[in-house]
């Protein structure tokens, strides 16, 4: 299982000394599939690797550096567009880690720009972004209504000339989810970066990353999210984290993430049965970078929707999606 090999290498970079060509091929394919190739490249920066691997890793480091630069530029553009509104714009996920210089940023793949803004500012934010050149991606009325009514964000917008996406959130889990984290409290405790941009407090960063991974997701990209969490945890005060997690209704999930991060990337932990199932899902990838255990993957896809929506709504949503040819990967 190449995902297990990837996890072992991230935990213990020196272990690559034992790899043969086939092992390297598996490791690289898994790292690319999990979008952890940049992270792997940083972890292996001081380790001796075969000559054929060196350019692959240096390409990955250069890609990560460019992504960080572009992500920070998008944040700058958003700050410029939203500055006049005078609301707190909280950067989330990869862009936040890059902007705050956190360890989790090293080599991290960064996709869209994710920002959290106060719910009462949503309309003004939407308007200001449109004035600054962002526009709607989807013109499917069903999806649009679904996003606005049930998700925790505006429908995604893309900048007309820069071709980069922005996701504007006003809470950190969909309104249909069982947990209801207190977004207003997170915004209030966020830390300023300058230019009207903020990042979450160290403890809220963990809570947010955990909500994203365990309470919301189908665990796609879970190994990367867990790697983030592993590093974010190092900056937290255990007591404050416990209190914050409880306040946001995510105490169970945060403890589970701590166990999983310790088990996969740290010094080990005792796992429950449910933890083990998640671990199996996280490690479901073969030596060609291909997902294995289709049934388990599908179960988690269903579960991710189950967590967000009551069953009847789920059926309706999946039906509408599948009729249009969408399938879980």
């Amino acid at each position: 299982m190449s995902a297990a090999l990837l996890v072992r290498t991230l935990r213990d970079p020196a272990s690559v000394a034992a790899l043969d060509a086939s092992g390297w091929n598996s490791l690289i394919a898994a790292a690319r599939a999990e979008r952890l190739i940049g992270t792997l490249a940083f972890r292996l920066a001081d380790v001796t690797v075969p000559p054929a691997v060196m350019p692959i890793l240096s390409d990955a480091r250069a890609d990560a550096a460019r992504e960080a630069r572009q992500a920070l530029w998008e944040a700058d553009r958003a700050a410029q567009a939203l500055g006049p509104l005078g609301v707190r714009v909280v950067l989330l996920k990869g862009t936040a880690y890059a902007a705050a210089g956190l360890k989790a940023r090293q080599g991290r793949f960064i996709g869209d720009l994710d920002i959290l803004v106060p719910v009462e500012a949503m309309a003004a934010v939407e308007q200001a972004l449109i004035v600054a050149g962002w526009e709607w991606v989807k013109d499917d009325p069903y999806d649009d209504a679904y996003y606005r009514q049930w998700m925790h964000e505006l429908p995604p917008m893309i900048h007309a000339t820069r071709d980069r996406m922005i996701d504007v959130h006003h809470t950190i889990l969909p309104l249909t989810a069982r947990q209801t984290p207190d977004a207003a409290a997170m915004i209030a405790d966020a830390m300023p970066l300058g230019d009207g941009l903020y990042v979450l407090s160290p403890e809220d960063r963990v809570v947010h990353a955990v909500a994203h991974m365990l309470a919301d997701g189908d665990l796609q990209g879970g190994l990367r999210n867990l790697w983030d969490i592993h590093h974010l945890l190092a900056d937290t005060e255990p007591n404050i984290l416990e209190a914050r997690a409880a306040r946001h209704g995510l105490g169970f999930h945060v403890r589970q993430a701590q166990r999983l991060a310790a088990a996969l990337y740290g010094s080990g932990a005792r796992l429950t049965l449910w933890d083990r199932l998640i671990r199996a899902r996280l490690l479901a990838r073969n030596g060609w970078g291909r997902e294995t255990r289709k049934a388990l993957v599908f179960a988690f896809f269903l579960r991710s929707h189950w967590l967000r929506m009551p069953p009847l709504m789920l059926a309706r949503h999946l039906w509408t999606k599948w009729r249009k040819g969408h399938r879980p990967q």
Binding site: D20, A21, S22, W24, N25, I28, A29, R32, A33, P50, A52, V53, P55, I56, W288, G289, R290
Partner: peptide, 30 residues
């Protein structure tokens, strides 16, 4: 036994499509 720059996968679009009207999904690292 070389370490490759890229992995390419030619895989069935579904299990059935491996045998009946075989249909290739082209993918890989990218």
């Amino acid at each position: 036994d070389a370490i490759a720059d890229f992995t390419v996968r030619l895989q069935p679009t579904s299990l059935v499509r491996r045998f009946i009207h075989p249909s290739i999904f082209i993918t890989g690292d990218h």
